[in-house]
C-alpha cells in the first residue's frame, strides 16, 4: 500500500492549476515547508507571498487580493486559520463571500507530536457555522489534489482540510470529485458508515470486516462536509438501521452532528459518532493517537454492532 501526504496533494493541485489560472496566487505564513507550498514558491516565485507569522494579516490580505480579482490560496495550519485568524476568516472572507481558498494543513489528531496546541480538532465546527463557506476534507493524496483543483474552479470561499501525516492511497475514492457530492463506496442495507477525510481508510476496513461476518454495509465517503450531500444521508437513514459517522475531528460540530441534524429532522435513526470525545489531544505518533482516542476500524465496528443490536 502506498502512503502519501494529503498536503502534497494540495500543492501538486496548485502546480497543476498554475498555468491555466494566472490569477491564482499562493500565500503562506512561515510554514511553507510544512504546508508544502514551498514547491509552488520554487516554480512560481512571483506568485508566492510569504506573510511571515501573520495568519490574521494573511487572511485579510487574501481577501484584498480576491477583491482585486485574484484567486488567493492562503495556507497555514488549521488551528491558525480558524482560531488565531477566526475573525479574519469570518469578517474578511465568509461575510462578503470572497473567492479566497484557505488551505489548512496539520488538522486532526494525526498531527501527532506537536500535541494538542497544534491539532485542529474543532476547525470544521468553526467553519461549518460560518455562512457562505464550503468545506472540503479529502481522504488521500489524490483526492486532495482533485479537491484543490475543484476549489480553484469554484467561485466562493473554500476551506480545504489536510493532515500532516502520510496516509494510504485509497483507489476507491479516486476520480469523479464534485463539490457537494458524496461517494457511495458500498451499497449495503444493514448499517451505514459515513466517513470524511482520512477516516475513509478505517471505514473501509470496518466495512470489509463487517461484510465478512455477513453484514451488509452502506459505506459513504463525504469529502464535502459543507454543503453536505443531504440526499445520500437521508437514503442511508431510511434504508439502513442506523449510521456510524467517523471523522478525525471533535464529535462536536463536525460531520457527525451534520448527519445527526439531517436525520433528526427528516428520518430519525440512531447515529453514533467516532471522533474526539470533547477532549484535547496530546503528543504521540499518529498511529498511537488513533489507537488511544478511538479512531480505528474496531471502534467503528463496535458502534455499528451497538446500533444493530438495538
Amino acid at each position: 500500500m502506498e502512503f502519501k501526504h494529503t498536503r502534497q496533494g494540495y500543492v501538486d493541485g496548485l502546480l497543476e492549476l498554475a498555468e491555466e489560472y494566472p490569477e491564482l496566487l499562493v500565500l503562506d505564513a512561515d510554514v511553507a515547508k510544512a504546508t508544502k507550498t514551498v514547491d509552488f514558491e520554487a516554480a512560481y516565485p512571483k506568485r508566492f507571498f510569504n506573510c511571515g507569522v501573520q495568519e490574521q494579516n494573511m487572511l485579510s490580505v487574501a481577501a484584498g487580493l480576491a477583491l482585486e480579482g485574484y484567486i488567493p490560496f492562503a495556507s497555514t495550519f488549521g488551528v491558525f486559520a480558524t482560531c488565531r485568524a477566526g475573525d479574519q476568516l469570518r469578517n474578511s472572507i465568509a461575510y462578503p463571500k470572497l473567492n479566497v481558498k484557505v488551505g489548512a494543513t496539520h488538522c486532526g489528531i494525526t498531527t501527532g507530536g506537536d500535541g494538542a496546541s497544534h491539532q485542529a480538532n474543532e476547525d470544521i465546527a468553526i467553519v461549518r457555522s460560518l455562512p457562505n463557506m464550503t468545506i472540503l476534507v479529502p481522504g488521500d493524496y489524490e483526492e486532495a489534489k482533485q479537491a484543490t483543483i475543484a476549489a480553484a474552479k469554484f467561485v466562493g470561499p473554500v476551506y480545504l482540510r489536510f493532515g500532516r501525516d502520510k496516509y494510504p492511497l485509497i483507489p476507491e475514492i479516486h476520480g469523479g470529485f464534485t463539490i457537494g457530492k458524496a461517494k457511495v463506496l458500498k451499497q449495503g442495507n444493514d448499517i451505514s458508515i459515513i466517513t470524511t477525510g482520512i477516516m475513509v481508510d478505517e471505514g473501509l476496513k470496518a466495512a470489509n470486516s463487517l461484510e465478512s461476518e455477513g453484514v451488509s454495509v452502506r459505506l459513504i465517503h463525504m469529502p464535502t462536509v459543507k454543503p453536505i450531500d443531504k440526499e445520500v444521508v437521508l437514503n442511508a437513514a431510511k434504508e439502513t438501521k442506523g449510521i456510524v459517522t467517523a471523522e478525525e475531528h471533535s464529535i462536536i460540530g463536525g460531520l457527525g452532528e451534520a448527519v445527526a441534524g439531517i436525520v433528526a429532522e427528516e428520518a430519525p435513526c440512531m447515529v453514533h459518532r467516532i471522533g474526539m470525545q470533547d477532549v484535547f489531544g496530546e503528543s504521540g505518533q499518529a498511529g498511537e493517537l488513533m489507537d488511544k482516542f478511538g479512531f480505528r476500524a474496531k471502534n467503528i465496528i463496535e458502534k455499528a454492532r451497538k446500533i444493530m443490536r438495538n
Partner: peptide, 18 residues
C-alpha cells in the same frame, strides 16, 4: 468589509499588492 478593527488596513494592503 471592515469594522472589526484591523481588518481594513490588512485588506487594503492586500488590494494594493494586487
Amino acid at each position: 468589509c471592515t469594522g472589526t478593527l484591523g481588518l481594513g488596513i490588512s485588506t487594503g494592503v492586500g488590494m494594493a499588492l494586487g
